[in-house]
């Protein structure tokens, strides 16, 4: 079968090109490890200075997750704040606490204010206060932000690397004249497209298994659903990326021009894939996310990994990805007409 011939050739090219092989297998793992290290770290412990604060308050503060430093005057506390030795200081004025924040990092600001709020609540509530009981429908109290956007990252890597490698490989087929040579053989146009999809598809399956295994078993990313569903999403996502990459490659004349599609095609998808809250965007922007494959991939990934949902819950997302792939495949076959008319 001619499709098989193409698959074998693509695999042999992969095996000869160790760098690309490493890029596709090792790079995602490396980046995911880094990201998990960055976002799984302990929550930030604010450093707060105190100036003449009553002992009772300092005790309460010590209950929260902060480190306290005592200063003799507001001036010395202010100096410490300027050199960023502390993140905020509390002084006592007219029987009320006054807080000055360093303020340049919103996440630190939030952490300090939260601590102070909790302290204030604790002191007003007294021993008999009502403590709400909190349960989580999905996720858990100790779910990290890495658990939250990890699924998006897996989808992103499935998309990005295949898009680039398949696109460039198809582009090279065109620029080195082998495509012209290929169409002088009895291979059909759809067989060329099918061969690419099968060859790269097989390879990305391996990539997907490796990334999924590494994220779940080594990095301990939250995984409440079934692995097979995760792999299915990754596979469909990378076939979408593959067919889009090969299609767009016919509008590029060099590898560099292929790279220019990254800010145009890849980066916007990241913004709309749920890394940022879509619901706060303008309505027309939200509509834009509906034409982005990664949006559906990430949605399905989160449903499986965080919410533990099954096949029937992600089937719509999968169907959309499949539709994307089919459309791109047909476009691929049509653009190949440029190289042979039959």
């Amino acid at each position: 079968m001619r499709v098989c011939a193409l698959v074998v050739r693509i695999w042999r090219q992969f095996l000869h090109d160790k760098r690309t092989l490493m890029l596709m297998l090792v790079a995602p793992i490396l980046i995911l490890t880094l990201v998990s290290l960055v976002f799984n770290g302990n929550t930030y412990k604010p450093k707060i200075g105190t100036v003449d604060v009553p002992a009772m308050v300092t005790q309460r503060l010590a209950h929260e997750d902060v480190s306290l430093v005592s200063y003799s005057s507001t001036n010395s506390a202010l100096e410490a704040l300027k050199t960023q030795t502390i993140d905020a200081y509390i002084s006592w004025q007219d029987g009320r606490p006054a807080v000055v924040l360093e303020g340049s990092d919103p996440s630190k600001n939030k952490a300090i204010l939260l601590d102070l709020q909790q302290m204030a609540e604790a002191s007003s509530r007294g021993p008999t206060g009502i403590q709400p009981k909190i349960t989580y429908l999905y996720g858990s109290a100790n779910m990290s932000s890495f658990d939250n956007f990890g699924p998006v990252l897996i989808g992103f890597f499935a998309f990005f690397f295949v898009f680039l490698v398949a696109g460039i490989s198809f582009l090279k087929e065109r620029t080195t004249g082998t495509l012209q040579r290929l169409v002088a053989t009895p291979i059909r146009r759809w067989e060329i497209v099918a061969g690419y999809v099968a060859g790269f598809g097989l390879f990305t399956t391996i990539q997907a298994i490796l990334i999924a295994w590494f994220c779940v078993d080594i990095l301990g990313m939250m995984m409440n659903g079934r692995l097979i569903n995760l792999l299915l999403i990754t596979l469909l996502l990378s076939i979408t990326a593959l067919t889009l990459g090969t299609f767009l490659s016919s509008f590029a004349n060099s590898e560099f021009q292929m790279m220019q599609f990254i800010p145009l095609v890849i980066v916007p998808q990241v913004f709309f894939s749920g890394l940022f809250n879509i619901d706060t965007m303008a309505v027309w922007l939200r509509w834009l996310s509906k034409i982005m494959p990664l949006y559906y991939g990430a949605d399905a990934m989160r449903n499986v990994m965080i919410r533990g949902k099954g096949f029937t819950d992600i089937v719509m997302d999968l169907a959309v990805l499949l539709a994307f792939s089919l459309v791109f495949m047909v476009l691929n076959v049509l653009t190949l007409r440029k190289y042979r008319h039959v």
Partner: peptide, 22 residues
């Protein structure tokens, strides 16, 4: 073809194998 359309990263044998199976 006038310009050599070969897969440079493959060996000659692999190029021949590919076209032979096509």
């Amino acid at each position: 073809a006038q310009s050599d359309a070969l897969y440079a990263e493959l060996t000659a044998k692999e190029n021949l194998d590919f076209f032979a199976s096509l």
